[in-house]
Structures are given as structure tokens and as C-alpha cells.
């Protein structure tokens, strides 16, 4: 399929609600990315530095989103927080896809005992409550806290990715099961192509489309899970600018009437999740082959 055809299909002349969901999601994601990239330039204060303002200052012109209990600027922390949120989520999704998709391809195409064992493992991971699973993996990877921010981020991503591997595995495997029955796969075999060629040139390109919506939905979920892990103390360290961490710490000051400390991080998590969900849902709808794509 040509890229232009995909475009024409995803963005035709006659549009439905899915098309606008997709557009909105993409716009939000682009804004978030710009925020993350330009954080060092646009952030008015150092996000980690304490007492840049009076603690518990409500939103005002000097501190757009107010300050927290240690006098750090919430607006600056939100901007920097976009970095860790996007980095952790993308890393988690990439790792999960990089492991889940090839395993799904192999398992579906080869079948037999390998398929059964892999499916069993994947199903048991899938059956486990996801946050608890991630919590367990994160705790195992971060015994007594990570040594650096980078390793904390990588460990958090790894912990989250474990939970997502089965969803890629399952959806790709299921597609391969039908794709491999296609005549063009038989034709390739009759031409003398070996298994690797058949997998990479004939099976994989026709089996990956259903994984695309999952990527964006996982993205949304990963931001939430990462926040949850930080909230529970096994993710990023508390001083680090991260929406989840800030939500967790700011939440404790809610009874004091300092709503802005938890409201803005919460809003950002909500917006980012919503954006990826919209993209995922829209793609799921638009890439559905039953939607009259010839």
C-alpha cells in the first residue's frame, strides 16, 4: 500500500468524528512534544530548585501554576515533566513492541509446541493485574532505589513494558494466523522462499496494522502507569519533575486548599492520556479493513 493511499484513506474528503478525534489527538501530542523539547528555554525557573518563590503561592502572574510546599515553580515542573512522561512512555512502548511483535510473528507462523509455550507465558502475564505486575518488576529492578535518574527511567520503562508485551504478541499472532493462510504466502513457498524471507517480506508487512492502535493506547496507559509507580515510590525519585510524582506529593496538600499542586499535573496526565486514546481509537476505527478499504 502506498503512503498516499493510507493518507487518502485516513484523511479523505468526507470525514466522520474519528477524523476529528485523530486530528485533535495529534495536535495535543505535538504540543506536548514541543513542551518537552523547549522546556529548558521556556521554563521560567529551575524545576528542582527550591524556594524560587514563597511556598504555597497560588497561581499568579509570577508563578502561573503556583508553587509547591518547597517553593518550587509548578509551571516549570510541568514543562520539564513532559520530558520524563514522554520518554518513559515511548521507551516502554518501543521495548514492548520490539519484543512482543517478533514473538507474535514467530509464534503464529511456526505454530506447534513453541507457539503453545509462548502463548501460555503471554497469557499468564496478561492475566496478572497490570499495575501489580509492573510494581513487582519495578521493585525487583530498583532494589533500594535507582542509582541515577536515567537508570530509574529505564527501569520504570522496562517494568511497564513487561505488562504490554502480551497485547502485541496476541494481536500480531492472531493476525499472522489468518495472514499465513493467504495464497500469497503459499505462492512464496512455491517460489522457493525460505521461512525468514516469507516472514519478513510476506507475513510481517501484512500483520502489523492491527498493532498500530495498540501502540497509541499503550502510550496513554504507560503515562498513567508510570505516574502510578512514581506515586507508589518505585518509579522516579520524588525531587524529579514528573507529573506522577508531583500529583502524588501535591495530593497531600489538597486538604490545605492548595489545589494547584495536584490539579495541574493531574490535568496534564489527563490531557496526554486523552490525546493518545483519541489517536488510538481513531486509528483503530480508520485502519479497520472492513471500513470499505478496497
Amino acid at each position: 500500500m502506498l503512503m498516499t493511499d493510507v493518507l487518502r484513506h485516513v484523511w479523505p474528503k468526507r470525514r466522520g468524528i474519528e477524523h476529528y478525534m485523530l486530528l485533535m489527538g495529534i495536535v495535543i501530542v505535538i504540543c506536548l512534544t514541543i513542551m518537552a523539547l523547549l522546556a529548558p528555554i521556556i521554563a521560567p525557573y529551575d524545576p528542582i530548585k527550591t524556594y524560587v518563590g514563597k511556598p504555597y503561592t497560588p497561581p499568579c502572574t509570577e508563578h502561573l501554576f503556583g508553587t509547591d510546599r518547597m517553593g518550587r515553580d509548578v509551571f516549570s515542573r510541568i514543562l520539564w515533566g513532559a520530558r520524563s512522561a514522554l520518554a518513559v512512555a515511548s521507551l516502554a512502548v518501543v521495548i514492548a513492541a520490539a519484543i512482543g511483535i517478533p514473538l507474535g510473528l514467530l509464534s503464529g507462523y511456526i505454530g506447534g509446541p513453541i507457539d503453545r509455550i509462548l502463548s501460555l507465558i503471554m497469557d499468564s502475564i496478561y492475566a496478572f493485574p497490570s499495575l501489580i505486575m509492573a510494581l513487582a518488576v519495578a521493585a525487583a529492578l530498583n532494589p533500594g532505589g535507582a542509582t541515577s535518574i536515567t537508570s530509574a527511567m529505564i527501569n520504570t520503562s522496562l517494568a511497564i513494558s513487561v505488562v504490554y508485551i502480551p497485547s502485541y504478541f496476541r494481536v500480531v499472532r492472531a493476525t499472522v494466523l489468518s495472514v499465513r493462510e493467504n495464497l500469497y504466502v503459499k505462492a512464496a513457498q512455491a517460489l522457493g522462499a525460505d521461512v525468514l524471507t516469507i516472514l519478513t517480506k510476506y507475513v510481517a508487512p501484512n500483520s502489523l496494522a492491527p498493532a498500530i492502535p495498540i501502540i497509541s493506547m499503550n502510550f496513554a496507559d504507560a503515562i498513567l502507569t508510570a505516574s502510578g509507580l512514581s506515586f507508589l515510590g518505585v518509579g522516579l525519585p520524588p525531587y524529579f519533575p514528573d507529573w506522577g510524582v508531583d500529583l502524588a506529593t501535591g495530593w497531600r496538600d489538597l486538604p490545605n486548599g492548595a489545589w494547584w499542586m495536584s490539579f495541574f499535573p493531574g490535568l496534564m496526565i489527563f490531557l496526554a492520556t486523552l490525546a493518545f486514546m483519541m489517536i488510538g481509537d481513531a486509528l483503530n476505527e480508520l485502519l479497520n479493513p472492513r471500513r470499505g478499504m478496497k
Partner: peptide
Amino acid sequence: NLRVVFETPYG
């Protein structure tokens, strides 16, 4: 004089 059209993404 029956005339029926289909709306498709291609027109």
C-alpha cells in the same frame, strides 16, 4: 429510470 450511487472514500 432508477439511479443509485455509492459514496466511497474514492468518490
